[in-house]
Design a protein around this nucleic acid. Structure first.
Ligand SMILES: Nc1ccn([C@H]2C[C@H](O)[C@@H](COP(=O)(O)OP(=O)(O)OP(=O)(O)O)O2)c(=O)n1
Ligand SMILES: [Mg+2]
Ligand SMILES: [Mg+2]
Length: 643
DNA sequence: ATCCTCCCCTAC
DNA sequence: TAAGGTAGGGGAGGAT
């Protein structure tokens, strides 16, 4: 009855609803969840265990009824032949958390603002639907202080309720050839032959990803040329400067990030609206806010929230259109300025980078940062903020304090432990919704709480790497290197919006188009691939039409990969493998909600762009640093970020 | 132990 | 109108 997949899912559900799941049997175990009893357990002293042995069905029923049910009807009989069923146990499912995932469909990706950016996948077994989206707590439609309200803002998304009957705005995708074709004309994957380009052109998330790759690449090329010219005898490039001998033998990292980037740039064209609360967003009732300025944030409006709820919180909100060309133009200026100050730069996004200023003293570094800030403003008319610290982690935290339009410096080591306690757990890099939930289920709510745990404890809760990283993070320690020279390890295209098909041939045709796009991208960096991965989103069994207009809704996501004998890069090779995998998944055409094709295990051509970097990247450089004050970051390529 | 696959999570 | 893309770190569990 339970496949391996379901086993994992049960694990996730257990965790989701507040159980602690461990892989061993010890005295803390209250329930053993299994479909049959492993023989090796039977032999042990567990003959009369303290825990109940129950079927996964019990878990699902408990969740559905929102309470702890008696285990009796779900007991598993003792003897059993099969020995390989893996087991899960819950320690204390004392209270099931309120049905927490109904909103899976309501949270746009890439947002940290919403109550539950939870994976739709989890919804499957619970059988709950997206519709009810209960904005957690918070009532006050009153402007909130800048510092975040503990959990929720007043603007939780309230996606439109869908009538269970027929939403005239959403044509049924189930009709192969609808006689009365509604207004999705040219909008969906099946109706628009130029869907991919048309869509990407307007997708902020696509631009974000494409720009990051583009600027990383250009910077890499620029630095490669620049350095090999400057350091004629030494052909290697370095990623970091050695610590300044006078600076306590520590690095100095400087994190620069534009303030409210999109909306600030868009506002340049509307000077009369400066100073007013404003956001950038597509227009319409169902759109998402890409960027909110600090005036708008006073109302609790955040990047990624629904436009609808933003306007509700601030009726006078100025809604500005995207201006992707301008964002790109300003980004170029930004990196041009940064590259003139340091040749150890890591691009984090189109509005953000970290510099290694280890060659300077603290004092000099602050002076330089002040200057950078001023020059960026002079060049772009946009403000940025800067954080300075001894590593990437603390520089980022300082950046938070610096926002908006400020600069902040991390205090000396002795004060770090206390200093870091002013942040929320969620402020730590790589700590998002899920980790916060996990930690809070162990009653770990603050940074101080994390500090009080030893590394072992954290690792047992979070896994080895994550636990260790977090242990050091709350002490302000981070040894991650700054990487100027980054080569992508994978290249892929994902489409999960407005995907509606009625038959497989159209889907195959679509896969061909995606494959062409993937090919263009991998060819443009001069690489081939030895592994192809197909991602497919399929409408979940009990899921209705998506809450979001033409969205994917609640889905099950499948990933299948194939390792190849020979590297591929041609569109027909990509598509033939992808289609082959797709067929095996046996998806009903009308249920398809998303497709992605990714290539990994990349091999870069030796004379193409990748080459210089790959070799140089691995070699640290002992050479002294050359002060580069006026090297412009030449951006030769006028090519658009996509396609 | 270490590698591989299939996720999950995070970030912008 | 709306435009939910992507890369990389990491974990679980099975194969070797
Ligand atoms: N959920 C999100 C987050 C960000 N972005 C885009 C718009 C932002 O302007 C840009 C940069 O992201 P930042 O996280 O740097 O946010 P801002 O620059 O808008 O604000 P700030 O950096 O001042 O916090 O990325 C987006 O489209 N959707
Ligand atoms: Mg920013
Ligand atoms: Mg940013």
């Amino acid at each position: 009855m339970y496949s391996r997949l379901d086993h994992r899912e049960v694990s996730r559900l257990l965790f989701k609803y507040g159980a602690s799941v461990i892989q061993r049997l010890d005295s803390s175990v209250t329930h053993l969840i299994t479909t049959d009893l492993p023989i090796h357990l039977k032999r042990k002293q567990d003959i009369t265990p303290k825990y109940s042995i129950v079927s996964p069905l019990w878990v699902l029923q408990c969740i559905q009824s929102h309470k702890l049910l008696p285990t009796f009807p779900f007991k598993i009989p003792w003897p059993s032949p099969s020995a390989n069923q893996s087991i899960e146990k819950m320690i204390s499912p004392s209270k099931l958390r309120g049905s927490s995932n109904q909103c899976a469909d309501s949270s746009p990706p890439g947002t940290s603002l919403f109550p539950r950016p939870t994976s739709p996948y989890k919804l499957k077994s619970v059988g709950t639907e997206t519709e009810k989206i209960t904005p957690p707590v918070t009532t006050s439609p009153i402007p909130q202080l800048l510092k975040q309200p503990p959990q929720e803002s007043p603007l939780l998304k309230q996606p439109p309720k869908e009538s269970p009957i027929v939403n005239p705005a959403v044509p049924s995708p189930l009709k192969p050839l609808p006689t009365k074709k509604p207004n999705t004309r040219m909008l969906t994957s099946s109706e628009n032959p130029n869907f991919i380009q048309d869509y990407f052109e307007k997708s902020r998330l696509h631009h974000l990803s494409a720009w990051k790759a583009q600027f990383q690449e250009q910077l890499r090329e620029y630095l490669t040329n620049n350095l090999s010219h400057k350091l004629s005898s030494i052909k290697t490039a370095r990623n970091e400067s050695p610590p300044h001998p006078h600076n306590n033998n520590q690095r100095l990292i400087c994190h620069v990030d534009m303030d409210a980037f999109f909306v600030t740039v868009s506002l340049l064209a509307f000077p009369e609206k400066r100073g007013l609360p404003a956001v950038v967003s597509h227009s319409g009732d169902n759109s998402t806010v890409a960027s909110a300025n600090y005036e708008a944030r006073k109302y609790g409006i955040k990047n990624g929230c629904w436009l609808k709820s933003a306007i509700k919180a601030c009726p006078d909100l100025q809604v500005l259109p995207y201006n992707f060309d301008e964002y790109e133009r300003v980004s170029k200026k930004l990196f041009s300025v940064l590259a003139s100050y340091s040749d150890t730069i890591q691009v984090l996004s189109c509005d953000e980078a970290i510099l290694d200023l280890s060659q300077y003293t603290h004092h000099q570094a602050q002076h330089i940062a002040t200057e950078i800030k001023a020059i960026i403003y002079k060049e772009t008319s946009c403000h940025c903020s800067i954080g300075i610290g001894k590593n990437i982690l603390t520089a980022r935290l300082a950046l938070r304090l610096a926002k908006p339009n400020g600069m902040a410096v991390v205090p000396p080591d002795e004060e770090l432990i206390d200093w870091i306690q002013q942040f929320d757990i969620k402020d730590l890099p790589n700590v998002g919704y899920s980790l916060v939930q996990r930690l809070s289920s162990f009653n770990i709510l603050s940074i101080a709480d994390i500090q009080s745990k030893d590394q072992e404890q954290l690792c047992s809760i979070l896994g080895a790497k994550t636990g260790r990283t977090l242990y050091y993070s709350v002490r302000g320690e981070d040894h991650k290197a700054l990487c100027s020279f980054q080569l992508r390890k994978s290249i892929g295209v994902d489409l999960t919006y407005a995907i509606r098909f009625s038959d497989n041939p159209s889907i195959f045709e679509f896969i061909h188009k995606i494959s062409e796009e993937v090919h263009r991208r991998i060819a443009s960096v001069g690489a081939r691939s030895k592994k192809l991965t197909l991602m497919v989103k399929k409408r979940a069994e009990e899921a209705g039409e998506a809450v979001k207009y033409l969205g994917h809704g609640v889905c099950d996501t499948y990933t299948r990969s194939i390792t190849l004998q020979n590297e591929i890069y041609l569109p027909e090779d990509i598509s033939s493998h992808a289609i082959q995998i797709y067929k095996k998944l046996n998806i009903k055409a009308t249920d398809l909600r998303g497709i992605g094709i990714h290539l990994s295990r990349l091999v870069y051509d030796s004379q193409a762009k990748g080459q210089t970097t790959l070799q140089n990247w691995l070699r640290p450089l002992g050479a002294k640093n050359t002060l580069i004050q006026s090297t412009p970051f030449e951006i030769n390529l006028q090519s658009p970020p996509k396609l």
